[in-house]
Design a binder for these strands. Structure first.
Lengths: 335, 335
DNA sequence: TCAGCTTTTGCAAGCGTGTGCAATCGTCAC
DNA sequence: GTGACGATTGCACACGCTTGCAAAAGCTGA
């Protein structure tokens, strides 16, 4: 194999096709005027040479790279990986491409990620984890980087904020427990306390108070299986044992249920009702069968992408609140 | 807010700092010679203006974008999302950035993904799902796009192939079953049959044959929880019920175990031993507690990234076979 | 002070593309 | 035959950056 230039350029294609370089460029730009004959010659030459438009150069010229950054931590987590999956899929369908940046959930590392997005002149970035601080957000907007915040908070203007109706869901959870005859409610949550988790907590406590039901609360670590186990041990050794527990995440619920059953020999839902949140795949597995709230993952992704495409009616709405449907399964009595 | 140019360029910074544009460029290129004084002026101006090097332009000049494409299907799957997580993390640490492309696992869509990688002049792409055909691989190599194939096959020259020692693992599974006194072995697998899954199957059958143990085999759908359930129904209604089942994936094992317990009231490991593969998080959950083989995810990622960086000794090895350690848990008797 | 050296600096070319502008071509009606 | 008009085409500049080259500046020792 002879040594050759790594990538073939439009110039090369033009030479082979016997046309000007602009003709090549126009052939690959939808909506530009090229005669059928020229187009055919160009396409033939491009195919023979293995030509592919250089998107770096195109992005440089158009000032629009087609890149959208996804900023996310703990991609291994079921909920997050499903959301990222839906987002990349829908971005691809919209002609964009996803760039993935890992963060530990510190604000600082989110800032670093956003700077990286700016460097690649991303058209937008979508923040799934962590909270960018005000100055970074301003920097992004100033640089023409559009921002979507998913289940973050509702503070930053100029961005699209997509949140769930966490308070409403929490209220429904209380209602379900009340109907099941639960008298002693409890809630377990992480210590991190993202705005959306805190909204679930506050909503649950408020709704319970409205019905004069007491709520025990535990906080620990991240929203993981291990945390769920640990909080189960704490909660189930209290003097009065709760009989209705709202886990702000299905992962917590899985750990909680396993410990309640194996270590405390409790029957779910007879002795203890459990409600989770997210509707991850595992919640539907036979061993768990958790009553939970479904994150409208496709809906979230669709709204984000629609806003990015600048669809007329969507562009104006900068704050969206989606509903999380309750999924009735077997971890609550009398569904 | 006044209308202004979207992005600030090196020119703008140079003007404000009172130096030439090249000085700005050199300031942001490690190893280039700039006086401390100039560097300070440049950094001050860059900070004030919010300047960020344009990586599209830089990539265009250097002919090296810093982008690495990850080609993957079903990111929602625990094993894949953990692998992608490790890869993006380690790529970031190496100064690269991950681009994520979703495929259905058809060869065709892998081809499309690779063309996308070429268009963005990615430095490399890492194929986690699907199998690119020979002509596309050639096209990539000709375009200077390096290729890493993870748990694919071992055919393509010029690429880095990272595989597990599936045969050895399968042999260890047979040994474990034999020690537990299992007489009737079985294996469940997807119909897709990627090379690595087929290697596990072939290895298991061969090792069982060497011990004169019969093996029942079932194939169905993807390597999912649902498939595991369905194959359990098929396998456990056979005239002779297996007492040692190798599930080529933990997800299959979860579905299999749930069905074996709830629908056939079998005790694991008393009536039935189960071994999985991957060591996903769920395999360690109390409800499953599956004896399995750990994918050396960090090792895979580390090897891939090291090869991409062109580390001297690594560059020569183009085919790697890593070991999957057995993780002893409770789904096999007498661990 | 000055030659000889190293470090720093600015200039300008070039990376591969998109696109405004003017020139060219073909078509058609008169 | 001619003029008008629309579709195509090529030229040349621009995008923001890197880098070779040569000039300038700083430093050393005699």
């Amino acid at each position: 194999m002879t040594i050759q230039k790594a990538f073939v350029s439009a110039q090369d294609v033009a030479a082979r096709a016997g046309v000007s370089r602009s003709a090549v460029s126009r052939t690959f730009t939808p909506g530009k005027s090229v005669s059928a004959e020229t187009r055919a010659k160009v396409l033939a030459a491009a195919d023979a040479l293995g030509y592919h438009v250089n998107h770096l150069a195109r992005g440089l010229m158009r000032n629009e790279s087609g890149i959208v950054c996804l900023i996310v931590s703990d991609l291994g987590t079921p909920y997050r990986s499903n959301l990222v999956n839906a987002l990349t899929q829908q971005l691809q369908d919209a002609g964009k491409i996803a760039m993935l940046i890992n963060t530990d959930r510190s604000d600082e590392s989110v800032g670093l990620a956003l700077r990286q997005a700016i460097r690649y002149r991303a058209d937008a970035s979508i923040v799934v984890s962590g909270m960018p601080d005000k100055s970074i957000v301003k920097l992004c907007l100033r640089n023409g980087l559009r921002l979507v915040l998913i289940n973050r908070d509702d503070e930053h203007d100029g961005t699209l904020r997509i949140n769930l109706d966490d308070a409403k869901a929490a209220e429904n959870a209380v209602t379900a427990f009340a109907r099941a005859g639960c008298k002693h409610l409890a809630l377990i949550n992480s210590t991190a306390g993202t705005p959306s988790l805190m909204a679930r907590e506050a909503g649950f406590i408020a709704a319970a108070a409205a019905r004069d039901l007491p709520v025990m609360v535990e906080h620990h670590g991240h929203t993981s299986y291990a945390s769920g186990r640990l909080m189960a041990q704490r909660l189930l050794t209290r003097p009065t044992r709760p009989d209705g527990v709202f886990c702000v995440t299905d992962l917590l619920a899985c750990g909680f249920m396993d410990t309640a059953r194996r270590e405390f020999h409790l029957d779910i839902p007879k002795d203890l009702c459990v409600i989770g949140f997210d509707d991850i795949e595992q919640a539907s597995w036979i061993s768990y069968n958790i009553t939970t709230f479904a994150q409208p993952i496709d809906g979230i992704a669709a709204n984000a992408v629609a806003w990015l495409r600048g669809d007329a009616e969507q562009t104006e709405r900068t704050s969206l609140r989606l509903h999380a449907d309750m999924v009735w399964r077997g971890s609550v009595r009398g569904g």
